[in-house]
């Protein structure tokens, strides 16, 4: 073994920004996350040239997985051209030379904040979800160490109690996004702040999901074909947002998750939240060639 064999040629910046040792650590932790679905795996979480809380966890995973042959899609709140999605997409392209796309069907790697695309993901696709708070137990236990012990003991009683209390007080479960869900029958995880509309897409999905919280330094995963069950009581069914009957005012798309746009006259109109689906729908309507893939929801119903 020579000294030369232990060194590498100097580069102004590592490929994908992260150095080899940071990538190896994330690789090791991702493998364990896949092996124990829904279990939060602590990792070092290096600083990246973006502020904490702005997708640094998702970014580190993407930077580890990326290669020049990978088509990358980045979305925020369902939209490809929102400012932070644009910023992350630009960064990923700059540090990797990987081609970017807005088309869900073309993407190999999708980094997303708060949404799962409406078009079904395939067995060869990876979804990286940005996670602000990886701990589903935080509302009932803010202390990370105690919460970890509760996961170890599968002690989710207080979680259930909280849901029960909400039903008693408000007549329904009040959780908006980030609906706590049981993965592979063992770990309760947060699916990240995706709307309740998106949680059923994770159950027995064909694609691999990696959820990564950079600030909180934890990552977890949902491998393909893994059970993801929102916590519900047998007699109070899980309810997604009442968006099934809404129509997008711009594209005419119907039966998907919508953004509500308040109007000056006190009413609201709606726009489909998955911006690329909206664009494709408009293109199809205008007679352009655009392929809308199979969607998880059909006529507003999860198939």
């Amino acid at each position: 073994m020579s000294l030369k064999s232990l060194t590498k040629t100097w580069e102004p910046m590592s490929y994908g920004f992260l150095d080899a040792s940071a990538k190896r650590e994330i690789r090791r932790k991702m493998l364990k996350a896949i092996a124990v679905p829904g279990c939060q795996i602590p990792y070092a979480s290096r600083e990246v040239p973006m502020a904490r809380g702005w997708g640094t966890g998702g970014l580190q995973v993407s930077c580890t997985l990326i290669n020049p042959g990978m088509q990358v899609k980045v979305i925020d709140q369902g939209a490809d051209d929102s400012v932070n999605a644009a910023s992350i997409r630009k960064f990923l392209a700059r540090v990797s030379g990987a081609p970017t796309t807005m088309n869900t069907l073309e993407a190999d790697l999708i980094q997303s904040r708060h949404r799962i695309p409406e078009e079904k993901l395939r067995e060869d696709q990876i979804l990286v979800l940005q996670v602000p708070n990886p701990e589903p137990l935080r509302p009932v236990q803010p202390n990370m160490s105690i919460a970890r012990q509760m996961h170890a003991d599968a002690d989710y009683g207080r979680m259930w109690l909280q849901l029960y209390e909400q039903i008693v007080r408000s007549g329904r479960v009040m959780q908006g996004a980030s609906y706590p869900s049981l993965v592979n029958g063992r770990f309760v995880m947060t699916p990240s702040p995706i709307p309740r509309w998106d949680v059923p897409k994770m159950d027995m999905a064909a694609h691999l999901t990696i959820l990564s919280a950079g600030r909180e330094k934890r990552l977890h995963a949902v491998p393909p074909y893994t059970r993801v069950e929102p916590l519900v009581f047998d007699d109070v069914p899980y309810r997604v947002e009442e968006h099934a009957a809404l129509t997008c005012s711009r594209s005419g798309a119907r039966g998907f998750f919508m953004n509500e746009i308040p109007q000056g006259d006190g009413t609201s109109t709606y726009e489909v939240s998955d911006s690329e689906l909206g664009v494709k729908t408009i293109r199809c309507r205008d007679g352009e060639a655009a392929q809308v893939g199979e969607t998880w929801y059909k006529s507003g119903e999860m198939v």
């Binding site: 590498k8 040629t9 580069e11 102004p12 910046m13 590592s14 490929y15 994908g16 080899a20 990538k23 190896r24 690789r27 991702m30 493998l31 896949i34 580890t64 997985l65 290669n67 020049p68 392209a93 700059r94 540090v95 990797s96 030379g97 691999l208």
Partner: peptide, 21 residues
């Protein structure tokens, strides 16, 4: 300019991809 992956990066990236899947 975009950084270009070294042989080492290309190889370890592809190996990890196989292990992960």
């Amino acid at each position: 300019t975009h950084p270009v992956p070294s042989d080492f990066e290309t190889r370890t990236n592809a190996t990890y991809d196989a292990l992960m899947w």
